[in-house]
Design a protein around this nucleic acid. Structure first.
Lengths: 157, 157
DNA sequence: TAATCTGAGTCTTTATTAAAGACTCAGGTG
DNA sequence: CACCTGAGTCTTTAATAAAGACTCAGATTA
């Protein structure tokens, strides 16, 4: 309860049905779904491992995995540990890997704006040959934007 | 059910309690929360306007707004339309504005991987003086990464 | 060959959370 | 003073999630 209204972007009402952001939110904007993606990104690809790491219910995990497979974000593969029968695991599809920047950007926000000091473990991206990869905000003229105070959101047609 | 296991990143188990990504997911990784942030980013700052745009219940909206205010992502301000009594609206705090890259990255994913052709309206970022701003994946050596196939996630200490 | 074990689920019951919509409350207007 | 409106709260009902028992397929052991 502080500021005056500021330069309000005069609310261009974007019907959620036509908004790719709203659609994306409906597909992956769920706490369990995001946590499951985090697990798979971190390398957990098997049902029970994800379940134990997250403490999620079997039925919810089963439900979310099925949705992610159906959306084409995950796919199932068969693996066989020596002396074990063939089992199934989940990996990201190309469409799923394309979510990595989203996840990393969210992680960066969390690292900067939550948790006071404790940044013990951090999820990062790198190329297969070991170069670090980061997401950056780049202006049209090529300069990097370092703070958000001069940035506004707009809706373009 | 296709691929072989591929170069699995040997699962560094990251306890969710120490992971800034998991924390961020618990704070904003909820469908309604994300949709509300989208509304406010698009310029809707009043209770009933958000409610009508989203078709969300009053009680859920009230609950989510309170949580976002408590987390320091939104703040309330007073406004007064002429000939009306003073009312309250919600805007992003600095911490909330720092979420813009996350939201934009998600929107870009949605635009590219959902909805076949229909990209009528798109949320974008720009500087206050009108320059477009985009999120990009940049390698350590400064080159831009255009496709994700050569990128992997790792957990660093 | 039968009995056993294990990962990856499904099913059932109970508890949480959300949806629908009536009710409240403060302050400004006629 | 009676009425209106934005911004909620409250109550009831419906949908989701949690807890945990049960299932099923195939490899192993006996």
């Amino acid at each position: 309860m502080k500021k005056p209204p500021e330069i309000s972007t005069s609310h261009t009402r974007v019907p959620a049905s036509e908004c790719s952001l709203a659609k994306a939110i409906r597909v992956v904007g769920d706490m369990w779904t995001l946590l499951i993606l985090r697990e798979i990104i971190c390398g957990a690809e098997r049902f029970d491992q994800i379940r134990e790491d997250l403490g999620i219910t079997r039925s919810v995990l089963s439900n979310r995995l099925a949705r992610l497979v159906q959306e084409g974000i995950l796919e199932r593969y068969q693996y066989r540990d020596s002396g074990q029968r063939a089992r199934k695991g989940y990996t990201l599809t190309e469409k799923g890997r394309a979510l990595l920047p989203v996840v990393i950007t969210l992680r960066e926000w969390g690292g900067q704006h939550l948790e006071p000091g404790n940044t013990s473990l951090r999820l990062q991206l790198q190329t297969t040959d070991g170069l670090r990869v980061e997401t950056k905000l780049i202006r049209e003229d090529g300069l990097e934007v370092s703070d958000m105070s001069g940035v506004v959101a707009t809706v373009k047609e």
